[in-house]
Design a protein around this nucleic acid. Structure first.
Lengths: 207, 207, 207, 207
DNA sequence: TATGAATGAGCGTTCATTCAT
DNA sequence: CATGAATGAACGCTCATTCAT
């Protein structure tokens, strides 16, 4: 019964194609006619499933937000006391995010670019990123409580820096090449996570 | 006399207003009619100065690219031998970029978002960011030659990480708030540069 | 049921009105808004049925070309051996063309003026006229084989002259008055065909 | 003194270039900016010399009309009594017109197509052609008086046919190839005039 | 559910014309 | 005489959305 073709399948298909188009060409550049042509349905069908173009984008972002936060939640593991443990825990979290991103690249691109879209869409994307940032902030906060990170640290700046790192890495890994001769795209999620975590904690000098 | 109002002024004005609109609302959402209304000229005047809407965007990016690379060039100082010197040099460079960004926030937003625009515009923005990344890459390469950074370092990954950091910091500093309770926007270019450079070299643990 | 109003009807209606406008006012002077206003549909409807303004013009010409060549094909009758027979055969062919022209005056005007339009349209009109000229050329060629026209005749010049005659006659008959006191417009297709055929074969002296 | 460069030269130059553009691309498709670009002057200069775009077209046609009628006037020779004389006289007239047409092809094309232009321009072109047709009508009328052409002849139809012939021949000769394999364009004015005159008087059978 | 036809507001661009210098 | 900058009405075309079937 899960495979019963019909309404649900059509809607999923439209969502998938819409996400791809939004990511690849931006929200505004994406035409409903593009989406339905690729899906092999009529324009009317689209509007039977969705209230509007904006509604699809919002639905894509909303669904993505929930999945993404679940992944981040899963990434949280009780941190042991040593620094290597802490680095490992962070790498584990990053790896989860990277894996998810590789499976949902279009979603991530929409989140990071705001779809180049209307304010409502930008806002929804923003909120998702803020939720991510919050997760990292709480993570660091706990590390400080455990005495593993200096108490004096500027939590705001740090979480912003960390989030910047993650967004940049994912963008280059999946949507790049920003830089033509970059080899970043060939890396595995594990390797990328290790490297990013090392940089996170030790910076350039520690690598 | 050189400052007499006239054709050149009109063109500059249009460029300035266009950049602001592109940054604030995105390329597609920006209407020529918006730009000329704000500039107090007719639609025809716009098309006397520019071939097309796309051409303005490209001209904005192109001019910005040149200025930005000049700033980065200027930021290069001969690096002394000690680690604190190196950190200081990096902070100096970052400070220059941050100052420039604060003076040209619209340009930076266009560069980082690709204007939400057509492919040609996205591409031009990409190229500018690649040129920035290249500048940092060369910087690090020199530091390795001087024995100040470990030779084993993955240059590609490192320059990508650094660039990610800078883009994220500038975005949050100028176009935020990504995170509502963030205080990043109140920081001075100097403070921001210091903090970013420290993170760059020492990571979370060194801060 | 086949005549039920619907998409096909709308398209036909637009084609008809467009042809009339193109003929009467020229391609460039004709506005899509004119056409749709007269058809009682919206601008969008026009663009649902046709790719562009040029495409309609081309479609009109293309359809006309086929009809016209069919008429000319029909006009071909096996020619008997005597001169009067030959004249009669030619008159018959001309009559068919004249009748068709009277039923499709807008098409003919577009063909003869190129719609005053873009190069593609001019070209399409040209090709149709060339196809007509070819038909006459083949006709004469056969007459020469049958020994009814002198072998020495310059076929190129002759078909050009004949075609000139036909175009001029139709223009003056339908779109005139070129000359204010001309009575040509009152003639029947038969009379016009007789007269033209006589001139064709005998010139001024034979009339 | 005749070569004193200046205003007059500029105006002549603009007229010449305008005529060429109107003929080649049609009145509507021709932009003032095209004309002035080719002339190497500014748009303002154009409007110093001419009241409007329409005014240039009208001036071109008006000047052409006068020259053309002068040529036709010259072509009139007192006709002798024999048929060969009459044919020769007609050939002479045609030759004059053909020569003029070859020297002023752009003018002729504008006349024959009405420039694809506005009503005023179409009208001016029409009037010129009517004036030509009138000249031929008078010619034939005289021939009837002299007993050289049958009195019963339909003068209206005949002059229309003759004018059609001439327009078609000139069009194909100068602006063709209507028909790709036609050799008409290589003919001399004399040959063309001879052939046309023969067809005029004797038709296909007499050639 | 799904379709295809229709809608109409909106936008980028063109181009004849004007005018201060 | 000549310029180049400016004007603005007009037009072709797009595309999200609606709706009868």
């Amino acid at each position: 019964m899960s495979g019963s073709s019909g309404a649900q399948d059509t809607k999923e298909l439209l969502l998938k194609i819409a996400a791809e188009y939004f990511a690849r060409h931006g929200y505004r550049q994406t035409k409903i006619s593009d989406i339905v042509k690729q899906a092999g349905v009529s324009q009317g069908t689209f509007y039977w499933h969705f209230k509007s173009k904006e509604a699809v984008a919002l639905e894509i972002i909303q669904a993505g937000k929930e999945q993404l936060l679940a992944v981040i939640q899963q990434g949280y593991r009780k941190q042991e006391g040593t620094v290597p443990d802490m680095v490992q825990a962070s790498a584990k979290l990053l790896e989860g995010i990277f894996r998810f991103s590789r499976e949902n690249p279009y979603l991530m691109e929409i989140l990071f670019t705001g779809g180049g879209g209307d304010d409502a869409i930008r806002q929804a994307a923003y909120e998702t990123r803020i939720a991510m940032e919050d997760a990292f902030r709480r993570n660091m906060s706990r590390a400080i409580e455990l005495g593993m990170l200096p108490e004096s640290m500027d939590l705001d700046a740090r979480s912003a820096l960390l989030m910047s790192l993650i967004e940049g890495v994912i963008s280059r890994w999946l949507f790049g090449p920003i830089h033509p001769q970059s080899t970043i795209q060939d890396k595995t999620p594990e390797a990328l996570a290790q490297e990013t975590a090392r940089f996170e904690f030790f910076g350039l000098l520690g690598m």
